[in-house]
């Protein structure tokens, strides 16, 4: 589980878009020894599940169908199988959105939409998940449920998440990519984080307080 942190416009989303192959880039990277640029679009979609920051839908589909479309790469391209439908039901239950299945997606609240879209991405069942602010608009109860799901699959999957809540990130994530002004400033484990480095990244004074092995973060203007 990797958290991507940084201020607005620091290049977090660009980084994710490049990783997902949606933006042109120079240089290169490999997945399991295979250069990403050589991968066809279908192949990269089979490897990487991507949740963009702002998703939109312009057809009155119900929430169940929205989640089902995440199975496209696993389908034969013409029809979803019974297995795809079973997976969809399962993932919707896991993300606590199964009760929304018959509701029109666009009639849902912002947080509900976000959870449905997250379930949709997880339904792709890829090895890598790139999630751009998956917690925005999601209530605390569901944030914790979602992070708990991430934690259970972290052994088999790489989960890269853009996140703004510093305390939440420090509490639940193990590796941190810190962006500032379009550059990756630090790539470190939890123990590498320090008040000084975080202050440098965010341009605010960041302080830590530790209690019962829990880290609390407070911030103030410099």
């Amino acid at each position: 589980m990797i958290a991507v942190l940084g201020n607005n416009g620091s290049g977090k989303s660009t980084f994710l878009n490049v990783m997902a192959g949606l933006l042109e880039f120079t240089g290169g990277y490999s997945i399991d020894g295979m250069p990403f640029k050589k991968m066809a679009q279908a192949e990269s979609a089979r490897r990487i599940g991507f949740l963009p920051q702002e998703a939109a839908l312009n057809m009155p589909f119900d929430a169940f169908y929205v989640v089902l479309t995440g199975r496209f790469i696993h389908s034969d391209g013409r029809m979803y199988s019974g297995g795809d439908i079973a997976c969809t039901e399962e993932v919707m239950k896991r993300f606590d959105v199964f009760h929304l299945r018959d509701r029109l997606f666009n009639a849902l609240s912002g947080g509900e939409k976000q959870r449905v879209l997250l379930a949709r991405v997880m339904n792709m069942d890829t090895d890598i998940f790139l999630l751009d602010e998956p917690f925005s608009g999601v209530d605390i109860l569901h944030q914790i449920k979602i992070v708990d799901i991430f934690r259970r699959i972290r052994k088999e999957k790489i989960i890269i998440v853009v996140i703004h809540d510093l305390s939440f990130a420090i509490q639940h994530f193990s590796r941190f990519l810190l962006f500032r002004e379009g550059r990756l400033l630090y790539d470190m484990k939890k123990d590498g984080l320090s008040a000084g480095r975080l202050s440098e990244v965010f341009g605010v004074r960041v302080g830590f307080a530790e209690q019962d092995e829990r880290m609390f973060v407070y911030t103030e203007e410099m």
């Binding site: 878009n17 997902a20 949606l22 679009q41 279908a42 979609a45 089979r46 990487i48 599940g49 991507f50 963009p52 702002e54 998703a55 939109a56 839908l57 312009n58 057809m59 589909f61 169908y65 479309t69 995440g70 496209f72 790469i73 389908s75 391209g77 013409r78 029809m79 979803y80 792709m124």
Partner: peptide, 23 residues
């Protein structure tokens, strides 16, 4: 006729549609 599922996915924004595996 063979593109029904792709057409449905095209109703999402382009980023979502491409990352779902639709050209």
């Amino acid at each position: 006729r063979g593109d029904y599922l792709r057409l449905d996915i095209l109703c999402f924004d382009d980023t979502t549609a491409s990352s779902t595996g639709v050209d």
